[in-house]
Amino acid sequence: MIALTPSEHFLANPLGVSPTAKLLGQQLAELPDWEQRYAAVIALGDHIPPLAEGDKIDANLLHGCQATVWVVHHVDPVTGLLYFLCDSDSRIVRGLLACLLCLYNAQKPADILSIQAKPWLEEVGLVRHIASTRSNGLWAMLGKMKAVASRY
């Protein structure tokens, strides 16, 4: 395997590029039951490129969820697009994070600030299916992404 430079690592993340939020939303909304929806969400989590071990440090920890979540970001100096990578020791949380990446990864900071996650999550049937205790990680991640975007 060829070692990627840190920025290539971010660019290698397909989520938000393909599938986009729109496509993912259609796919999830068409699934008939919770089992398939959970399976799809968990499978989506596997598409997040693995975080470098060196990024799994306390400074990158996201607080407020039962699972451990790390988030890092990168701004492309040429395009100005904001990229995120994240990981969790919980497969469900990682899948949910992947859903958010479909919405927010590789976007302009201004768009990240304006795109609303909750209506979309409701529309694709995720909010209803996520236990309230598990959605904490989701909202914490959302807050983190918005906070990062507001700095650029």
Binding site: S88, S90, I92, V93, T133
Partner: peptide, 11 residues
């Protein structure tokens, strides 16, 4: 993760 097991049992 125990929380994942719990969530899927809860369902």
């Amino acid at each position: 993760h125990p929380a994942d097991v719990g969530t899927l049992l809860d369902r």
